[in-house]
């Protein structure tokens, strides 16, 4: 290769790289423009405060018209009991819509387990809801553009547009999505979008008697939730999936799946 050919090749290569970068900008304008939105909804859960009453699940199901007796829910509460032998038991009977009214662990298939009080090393409740990920895998896989992320971070499902293929239900690493038994489309928690946009708190946050659930705006430096996330030790579920979840937890145990 002589000098002339080398320069030609280098120029071609540069052109290809620049063009590729430019096309990338066309398909992802948000990355290029780096939009500074003043609003980004985030959620904060304090597992120490949760008492497992399940009023959040009841309120969510009634508020969002999710059939009460169907085994699907936009939010649920899990109970974790760790014994002195290191065994971990977890259950969420009926998504905890009726709370935890017995000490027996629901093992499924009609089996229950009694764990004696002195054997319990630690036990706690973990409320779960859609993480409204910064990089939602459920949105990426939707073939028809029925689910999408808003500028305020909330991921919504268009019930008129959804074809019910179920890709998003499989793509969510947190199992937050389900098939709505009445509308026959994918459904998920949307932080009660109709409430947070009218100055109300989500139904679960309002129903919580202990303040274990809170909603806030992470772009607002005066926001109490933003303050806690910025100044205290918080964790998110399954960060290894790279979805950048936006539901933060205080006291998230390693046992939590």
């Amino acid at each position: 290769m002589n000098r002339r050919d080398f320069i030609k090749l280098a120029m071609k290569g540069t052109a290809v790289v620049v063009l590729a970068k430019g096309l990338d900008g066309i398909f992802r304008p948000s990355d290029v423009q780096a939009l500074a939105t003043p609003l980004r909804f985030v959620f904060l859960v304090d597992t120490y405060k949760c008492i497992g009453c399940g009023f959040c699940v009841k309120a969510c199901k009634l508020e969002n018209e999710i059939p009460f007796d169907a085994d699907v829910s936009r939010t649920w509460v899990e109970r974790y009991v760790v014994t002195s032998e290191g065994e971990v038991f977890a259950d969420t009977p009926k998504e905890a819509r009726n709370g935890f009214i017995t000490g027996q662990i629901d093992l499924g298939r009609g089996k229950f387990k009694d764990i004696p009080r002195e054997k319990i090393k630690k036990a706690f409740f973990v409320p779960k809801l859609c993480n409204q990920c910064e990089k939602p895998s459920c949105v990426q896989v939707c073939p028809v553009g029925a689910t999408y992320q808003n500028a305020d971070g909330v991921v919504l499902v268009d019930r008129k547009w959804c074809i019910g293929c179920g890709y998003c239900i499989m793509a969510c690493p947190y199992g937050m999505r389900f098939f709505h038994p009445v509308h026959h489309v994918a459904d998920k928690c949307n932080f009660c979008y109709h409430r947070i946009n009218h100055g109300l708190r989500p139904a679960c946050v309002q129903a919580c008697p202990t303040g274990a659930r809170q909603i806030g705006n992470i772009k607002d430096h005066g926001d109490p939730v933003e303050n806690i996330i910025r100044t205290q030790q918080v964790a998110v579920h399954k960060p290894e999936y790279g979805t950048n979840p936006q539901v933060y937890y205080i006291g998230l145990g390693e046992e939590v799946r």
């Binding site: 398909f27 992802r28 304008p29 948000s30 990355d31 309120a59 009634l62 508020e63 969002n64 990089k135 939602p136 949105v139 990426q140 553009g145 029925a146 689910t147 999408y148 992320q149 808003n150 500028a151 919504l156 268009d158 008129k160 547009w161 949307n190 979008y193 109709h194 409430r195 946009n197 009218h198 109300l200 139904a203 309002q206 129903a207």
Partner: peptide, 23 residues
């Protein structure tokens, strides 16, 4: 939000905002 996350029907946002408040 761009093509990856923001490919959708805009009027659906309003539809969700107008969902009935019960609590």
């Amino acid at each position: 939000q761009g093509y990856t996350y923001g490919w959708y029907r805009q009027s659906n946002v309003e539809e969700w905002k107008n969902f009935t408040v019960k609590y």
